[in-house]
């Protein structure tokens, strides 16, 4: 089931079209990457999902019904530029935001204590935010975002400003939340982390959804369902043995010194036969679908759709 469906949403400002008929569906329990170059319209879309601004046309469905103001308590949003009151104490501030999201004071205190203990930051409770370092403030911001156990979490560049250890901690927490039943929307420019954590993505460019889909599918499709074989042995012999099972063969060497054959499997051939034939002909080390990096996909798609 889709927790969030965006149907043909358009939004224009005075001089430009921020979103042009964007549609996407976020499956429940998934981590959904929202990608796109700066100024593509991601933030506008996030604001619409957050019920901050209304679309000019189109519909947003949340959890099976049209998105309303009341749904906002089920959404947690971590904006790219962090938003905390600098002069307010950490604990007090977290409680304030939790209560704005509909938690009772008592529940908020209980939840907050649990998170603070988890992150081992109990002694920050009475500190002012301005006394914290940037990374520390971001931890607080993260807690504020997830404290009310939202069904849908929206993270805008969550890892920026974190050191690798804390970034990892955060990644684990996000995965844990996903495993606990939350759905995560991820907006980022860090393509490596998209490969790592996202199940699905949508790529927005110039206000349009130019690419949507399952991350693994997309990466495979990019090279036209090619496979890469690493082996020791005679490449000519292998290509002869494969015969009409493979086309568009390219040869190269990988860093470990093995020969690498990149090929496109013809539709009639079964992958098992390809493996069998290869195994008999050469010493096969590995066979894997050729995966494009999200970086390659991002750059090419944006270039192709920018004209």
């Amino acid at each position: 089931m889709d927790i969030l469906k965006v149907d043909n949403v358009s939004k224009s400002y005075t001089n430009h079209l921020a979103l042009d008929n964007v549609s996407l569906s976020v499956p429940e329990g998934s981590v959904y990457g929202l990608l796109g170059p700066n100024g593509a319209g991601k933030t506008t879309l996030i604001r619409i999902i957050n019920h901050i601004t209304a679309p000019d046309s189109g519909a947003v469905t949340f959890d099976g019904h049209q998105l309303t103001q009341d749904d906002v308590v089920h959404i947690g949003y971590l904006p790219e530029e962090r938003g905390l009151y600098k002069k307010m104490k950490v604990g007090e501030q977290a409680l304030y935001f939790a209560r704005l999201k509909g938690l009772s004071k008592r529940d908020a205190v209980v939840e907050l204590r649990r998170w603070f203990e988890r992150f081992e930051i109990m002694d920050w409770w009475d500190k002012k935010v301005e006394e914290l370092s940037k990374g520390m403030a971001q931890k607080v911001q993260f807690i504020v975002t997830v404290l009310h156990r939202p069904k849908l979490l929206i993270f805008d560049e969550p890892f920026s400003g974190f050191d690798p250890i804390n970034a990892n901690l955060l990644k684990e927490e996000i995965m844990r939340l996903r495993d606990g039943g939350s759905t995560v929307i991820f907006s980022t420019h860090n393509m490596a982390s998209v490969e790592e954590v996202c199940d699905h993505i949508s790529l927005i460019n110039h206000g349009r959804n130019v690419l949507s889909g399952n991350v693994d599918d997309l990466r495979r499709r990019y090279f036209g369902n090619r496979y890469e074989l690493a082996y020791k042995g005679d490449s000519d012999e292998l290509s002869r043995a494969l015969g009409d099972m493979a086309t568009e063969i390219e040869l190269s060497l990988n860093p470990e010194g093995y020969s690498v054959m990149s090929l496109r499997k013809t539709d009639s051939a079964a992958l098992r036969d390809v493996i069998d034939v290869s195994n008999r002909t050469v010493e096969l080390i590995s066979i894997a679908p050729a995966l494009a990096s999200m970086n390659q996909i991002f750059i090419r798609t944006v270039k192709d759709t920018t004209l």
Binding site: Y77, G83, K86, K101, V144
Partner: peptide, 17 residues
């Protein structure tokens, strides 16, 4: 101005009109 600059509003405004 301060709330706008440190983006507190982006969070608060999702809960409060």
């Amino acid at each position: 101005i301060e709330e706008k600059n440190n983006r507190v509003l982006e969070i608060v405004v999702s809960s409060v009109k």
